[in-house]
Amino acid sequence: MTDTTSGAPNPPHGYADHKTDHLSRLHKVEGQVRGITRMVADDRYCVDVLTQIGAVTHALQEVALGLLDDHVRHCVRDAVLSDPAEGDAKLDEVALTLRRALRL
């Protein structure tokens, strides 16, 4: 993987060790969303559709939490240990990301 602007290789992202797990979950979510689409097309009962939407929402939240955990344990920790200013920037980034995710 290379940086598109400089051509230099990118370091692996914090989630590299769990990439296969994240992709697997996302593929399952993709299948669940297709199932919901079929349910609506087939005029299935509203509560059943809403139940499946809740399941997809929860599954996506689990992926998000896994990515956040990987980011904090790798990217943020490495930045804090290597350079205090960079560490502060990464912590600010995490706070902003959580604010967006939680809509605060």
Rank of each mutant, 00 (worst) to 15 (best):
A101R: 04
H74P: 02
Q61C: 00
L98E: 03
E62K: 15
R103C: 08
R34A: 12
T57E: 11
G54R: 04
E86M: 05
R100W: 12
V72T: 01
E93I: 03
Q32D: 07
D48I: 02
T20Y: 09
T51H: 14
H71T: 03
R103D: 08
Y15D: 03
P84W: 04
A101D: 02
C46D: 11
R44A: 08
A64W: 03
G87V: 00
T37C: 10
R100I: 09
L81G: 13
Q61P: 00
L50T: 05
T97F: 02
E62Y: 07
Y45R: 11
G14D: 00
R77I: 10
A41G: 05
Y45M: 14
L68E: 01
L91D: 00
V49E: 01
D88I: 14
V47C: 10
G7V: 12
V29W: 11
R73P: 02
G66N: 01
Q52D: 05
I53Y: 06
S6K: 10
Q61F: 03
A41D: 15
P84H: 09
D83N: 11
A85Q: 13
A8G: 08
L96P: 09
E62A: 15
I36P: 02
S82M: 05
V33Y: 10
H18R: 15
T37M: 09
V56E: 06
H22R: 07
G54Q: 02
H74C: 04
A79I: 06
P11G: 09
L104W: 09
V76T: 00
Y45D: 15
P11I: 05
L67S: 00
H18I: 13
A85G: 12
L67Q: 00
H58C: 02
L104C: 10
T97S: 09
C75P: 04
L98Q: 02
A55W: 08
L67N: 01
L60Q: 04
T20W: 07
A8E: 15
V47Y: 04
V80I: 13
K28A: 14
D88T: 12
L23M: 13
D3G: 13
P84Q: 13
R44F: 03
M1G: 15
G66T: 01
R77L: 15
P84L: 06
G31P: 04
Q61G: 07
L91V: 13
D43C: 12
V33M: 10
A79C: 09
I36S: 01
H71S: 03
Q32N: 08
D92A: 07
R34E: 08
K28I: 10
L65Q: 08
P11K: 13
R34Q: 14
H13P: 15
K90A: 05
V33H: 04
G14T: 01
D3P: 15
T20K: 14
V76C: 00
L91P: 00
H58N: 05
G66I: 03
P11T: 14
D69E: 11
L26T: 03
D69H: 15
T2V: 10
A89K: 13
L81V: 13
V40I: 15
L50Q: 06
R25N: 06
A8H: 12
V47G: 09
S24G: 11
V56W: 04
R99Q: 14
